[in-house]
Design a protein around this nucleic acid. Structure first.
Lengths: 346, 346
DNA sequence: CTGAAAGCGCTAACAT
DNA sequence: ATGTTAGCGCTTTCAG
C-alpha cells in the first residue's frame, strides 16, 4: 500500500493541468473543455485507480457529505427500522450516515454526548425521539455549527421538526380498551420518573409536556372515571421489566387491560402474562406501540400504534435538503398522525 | 451563523502563534510550553467556543477517526445489537461510526456497493456476515486504501476475521432435534438459492463453502438417515416468508421439527404454526438462531443458537486497533463458538 | 480552452 | 520556549 494517487498524478498522466482534471472529473460542463480531453482525463484516472480524497474535498468545500442520526438509549427493532429507512435516502443522495446513540447524564450507557455529536464530521444531525435527558439545549443547537432536525414523537421548539402525532392513536387505543370494558387499565412504561409517579400523572393531566401516550392514557382514564395505574420506570433490561411487572401483579392482581410504552415491552408483557396463566385478550387485553413486525407474529397478534416511519424519514430528508440549501429559511414543521391498529390482543 | 473560529483566532486572542495553540490544545507535553501559556490558550479557545475542524485534521493526519460498519441486506434485531455493541467500543475510543447496508447486485435494496464503502470517509471497514453477493472481491480489499475486517459467521481468506463458529451450535441443535425423535426435520432458510435446492444440499454435504447452519443440518440429517428437507429462498418480506411456509405445509404436511435460519424467521414460523393449530413442541419442535431477546418472550420460549455478540465486537475492536497501528502485521484470526441454547420450544 | 495559484484549517518540522 | 512555514488534496478564481 503506497501513496494514493491524487489529481496531480492524473494530471501528469493525462498531460493536462490539475485544474483541468478537477473540472473534467466532476463533470462540470459549465467549463469549456474539449470532449477528447475529458475522456483522456477520465481514462487516466481510471488507469491509476484514482479516488478523490474526501477529507480534502470536505476541507475545501465545507461539506462532509455525511449526516449523523442519533437515537436515544439503545437501538431496538423500531429504531433499526428508522435507521434503515433513513439510510435509504442518504444512500440515494450519496451521503454517508453516521449512526449514534445519545448518552444521557444519568444512564450509564455509552452514547455520545450531544456536543460531540454536534461537532462531529457531518453536515447535519437528525435527532430521533429527543426527549427528557436526550433533549439538548435549544440554544446550543441554534448557535451550533450545523443544522439539527428533530424527528419522532417529540418536537423541539424553534428547530425543524417532523413530529409523529401519537396522541390521536394513543387516545384511540385507550378508548378502545375502555369501551371494551376495561375497569382496571394499566399503563406500562419504560421511561417514567419511577420515584414520583403521582406527580407525573398530575403533569400528564395538566400539561402537554409529557409523553403523548401517557397524556392520552391519563386523560382517557380520568374521562372514563376509572383509576389511573401507571407502572414502570427506567427499565433498562429485560429482567428488570419482568420483575417490575410480576411484582405489580403479585401485589395488586392482574389489570384487565395493559397499554405498553412500546411493542418490545408489549411482547415481554405478553410472555409474562401467558406464563402466569392469563389469557389474552380474555383476562387481559394488551396494546403496544410502534408497529414493529413481530407484533403480527404473536399469538394472539398484538394491537399496536403504527408509526409512519416511511413518511417520517421521507419528510426528514426533504427538510434536511431544504435546510442545507437555505440555512436561514423559516422553521420547517410537519405533523404526521400515527394510527391505532387494533388486532386480536385487544 | 458566521465563520467558525479557527486556531488562528485562538492564537490572536491568546497572543501566541498558531502552532503554540495547536500544541497546547492537543495537550502535547513533549513540547515545552509554560503552564501559564497553556492555560491562556485553553481559556481563549473556550471563550470563543473553538472546535477543531475535523476535515482539516483528517486531511493533514490522514485519519478520519471514523469506522464504517456494513451489514448485508437489512438491519434487523440481531444486527441492531451488533451495531450497538460495536458502537460502544467506537464511542469509547472517540471514533465515529458510519453504518451502512451493502447492496447486492441482484437484490433491489438500496445498500451501498462495496467500492463506495471502501472509499468512504472512514479509516477502516468492518464487514458483518459478508457472504454470497455481499462478499467483496478479496483483491479489491487487499489493494484498497484501508483495512477491512470481517466479523460474523463467515470469514474472508487473507482478511482479518473474527468468525463465529456456528457449526458446533447448529450441529448440537440438529442432533438435539434428531435425538428427540425428529423424523421429518426441516430447515427453513432465508438466503438459499431457491431455484436449485438439491444442488445446494449436495454442496452442503460435500463442501465447506455454504452456510454453516445448512451444512450442519444436511450432515446431521444424512448421518441420522432421515430425509433432508430444505425450504425457503431469498425471502425478503414477512408475507413472502409466511406464504412459503404455508404452501409447503399445505403440500407436504407439517414437519415434526423446524430449524430456522434466524430468530426473526423462527418467531414468524412460531406464529404461523400456532395459527394453523399446531402445538409447539408437541407437534412441531422449533429452533431459531442468533439469540435475540424476543425469543425468551415467546410461548413457549424459543430455543436458539446464541451469537457471542459482545465477544465478537470486543475482538473486532482489538483487531481493528492492531491493524491500524501496524498495517502490515500478519493476518489476525479468531474463532468464537456459538452455543446452542435449548428452551421449551424444542 | 487551459494553467497557475490561492486558500480551506490543521499539524509538525524547522528556526529562532 | 515560541514563531515561521510548508504542505496535506481539492476547488475555484483569475490570467493567459
Amino acid at each position: 500500500m503506497h501513496r494514493r494517487p491524487t489529481q496531480a498524478d492524473v494530471a501528469r498522466l493525462a498531460g493536462v493541468s490539475k485544474s483541468t482534471v478537477g473540472f473534467a472529473l466532476s463533470d462540470r460542463y459549465d467549463i469549456a473543455i474539449p470532449e477528447t480531453t475529458r475522456q483522456r482525463v477520465k481514462r487516466a484516472a481510471l488507469e491509476i485507480n484514482y479516488r478523490p480524497n474526501l477529507a480534502a474535498r470536505a476541507l475545501n468545500s465545507g461539506r462532509m457529505n455525511a449526516v449523523t442520526i442519533a437515537f436515544p438509549g439503545s437501538i431496538h427493532s423500531y429504531y433499526a427500522r428508522v435507521l434503515e429507512m433513513f439510510e435509504y435516502h442518504s444512500n440515494l443522495h450519496g451521503y454517508h450516515l453516521i449512526a449514534s446513540t445519545i448518552g444521557s447524564l444519568d444512564s450509564h450507557n455509552s452514547g455520545l454526548d450531544f456536543a460531540t455529536l454536534l461537532h462531529g464530521p457531518s453536515d447535519a444531525v437528525m435527532l430521533v425521539d429527543a426527549f427528557g435527558h436526550y433533549l439538548p439545549n435549544v440554544h446550543e443547537i441554534l448557535s451550533g455549527p450545523k443544522p439539527v432536525i428533530s424527528m419522532g414523537i417529540t418536537e423541539i421548539d424553534g428547530i425543524d421538526s417532523i413530529v409523529i402525532d401519537l396522541m390521536a392513536g394513543a387516545d384511540a387505543a385507550c378508548r378502545h380498551l375502555i369501551e371494551g370494558g376495561a375497569r382496571r387499565m394499566m399503563y406500562f412504561g419504560a421511561n417514567m420518573p419511577q420515584d414520583d409517579i403521582p406527580a407525573y400523572i398530575e403533569k400528564c393531566l395538566t400539561s402537554d409536556d409529557a409523553d403523548p401516550r401517557c397524556i392520552a392514557f391519563c386523560r382517557a382514564a380520568r374521562a372514563a372515571g376509572i383509576p389511573i395505574h401507571m407502572v414502570g420506570g427506567y427499565l433498562s433490561d429485560r429482567s428488570a421489566t419482568i420483575d417490575t411487572l410480576e411484582a405489580y401483579i403479585a401485589a395488586h392482581g392482574c389489570p384487565d387491560a395493559i397499554f405498553c410504552h412500546n411493542d418490545i415491552l408489549a411482547i415481554r408483557v405478553h410472555g409474562v402474562l401467558r406464563r402466569m396463566g392469563y389469557q389474552i385478550p380474555r383476562d387481559v387485553r394488551l396494546i403496544g406501540c410502534d408497529g414493529i413486525e413481530a407484533c403480527e407474529d404473536m399469538e394472539p397478534p398484538l394491537s399496536t400504534i403504527q408509526q409512519p416511519v416511511r413518511e417520517m424519514c421521507a419528510a426528514a430528508w426533504e427538510f434536511l435538503q431544504a435546510r442545507l440549501a437555505e440555512p436561514d429559511r423559516p422553521r420547517q414543521y410537519m405533523r404526521i398522525p400515527a394510527r391505532f391498529l387494533p388486532r386480536a390482543s385487544s
